[in-house]
Write a protein that binds this DNA or RNA. Structure first.
Lengths: 211, 211
DNA sequence: AAACCCATGTAAACGGTTACATGATTAT
DNA sequence: ATAATCATGTAACCGTTTACATGGGTTT
């Protein structure tokens, strides 16, 4: 019973379940495949390998090379396969985490003239459209039947970026015509209540305020 | 020139730009408003306040209370407002980061019978649908005109969760009928190449393999 | 009686990123 | 000449989370 593997550890095991690789290869593979939904930095790859090997989940073999540095080729051990598979087999999607600075900026839109937020929204839309296009053309090229699962993750990206672009467009049209003035001095403001209580999934009545 | 504020710092400033609040209030407000796209834990709220106050961006005032613990009410200083506004005014959306464990599981679907992945996908769809419904009913209740920007962030959530559910449904239908067998022993496998080179946005030819 | 709300923090760990360090080979 | 590729790592830091600590008041 390995002492609590992180999702990143499983990611490393998973990549090694495709081909045996060196740390260098792993870092590149991660960058070119799972980066968009589970980034793994180069240093962390080496750190993970150093953790996983003594646990017996992974095994490295020194490969002498000439003309370039020697390397250690890592492969999944049987124990490693078992650990990976037992993680995969639980249908638990795990906790998704998002950090989207631009939504913070939108949320605080009351500080700005609506045109500022509109500009931001156009930026968001442009980026989303560009990414959607890139991913779509990637999808078109991924015709190898064995890449079925990889294609699903890319099509996820297409869906999300398209939805994002659509939202940004709609949001721009929904922008208030005038700047929303919120005076923090107005203590117990209905605005603050509306903002904070809303998300609390509670009643739609009462306006006694926060303070 | 404050020495490099984090996005979380800006989030605290932003919340205080709505109403002056105690650390406790801030933590709750964050939990009930920006949590889905920028989570801030209770401890971190206090840590941020302790950083922001000596920088002069925020100022706390002791409020004596009876019947409950005293508290410190924090308000934005003029300098704090300036810092917040200059951050908001740049139309840079910032770097979005996602961590979606279920996409990792999908990506490694070749380890499992397709039915296992199908189960996962159904789980994902159910969760997404539930969240979409919750956010939609939230939206319906957020009718206060001053909550316009907050509503945009919620409608973003609706869009994303709906897109996610739609993807999960489509993905389930796209699942390969048979398990994809990938033998890592087959060094230089075309599969590995297809998976890893694909995302590199490069040529669609050549199959010399990785190793 | 037990649990939760208000209110403030500290301490420790964790997961992860960035920068640094080294060095041969190959491509531009 | 310069930069990029291959290859492996270390060290320091950063942002964040979790658990701990305390204590009166209110609600169930």
């Amino acid at each position: 019973m390995p002492p609590q593997l992180t999702t990143t550890s499983q990611a490393i095991l998973g990549l090694l379940s495709i081909v045996p690789m060196s740390g260098y290869d792993l870092a590149q593979a991660a960058e070119h495949s799972i980066r968009l939904f589970w980034p793994v930095s180069k240093s962390q790859v080496y750190a993970e390998l150093a953790r996983l090997e003594p646990m017996g989940l992974v095994q490295g073999a020194e490969i002498a090379q000439e003309g370039r540095p020697d390397k250690r080729l890592f492969r999944l051990t049987e124990q490693g396969e078992a650990v990976l598979d037992s993680w995969l087999e639980s249908a638990d999607p795990g906790a998704a985490r998002h950090r989207l600075p631009f939504l913070l900026k939108v949320f605080f839109g009351h500080r700005m003239a609506p045109e500022r937020t509109a500009e931001l929204l156009r930026e968001v839309r442009a980026k989303a459209r560009a990414e959607a296009a890139e991913l779509s053309s990637l999808l078109a090229v991924m015709d190898h039947p064995d890449a079925a699962y990889a294609r699903l993750t890319v099509s996820f990206g297409v869906r999300m970026t398209e939805a994002m672009a659509a939202w940004a467009e709609e949001a721009e049209a929904c922008l208030p015509p005038e700047r929303i003035e919120i005076d923090p001095r107005r203590v117990g403001s209905t605005t603050a209540s509306a903002l904070f209580r809303a998300a609390a999934r509670l009643s739609a009545d009462d306006d006694s305020g926060l303070a």
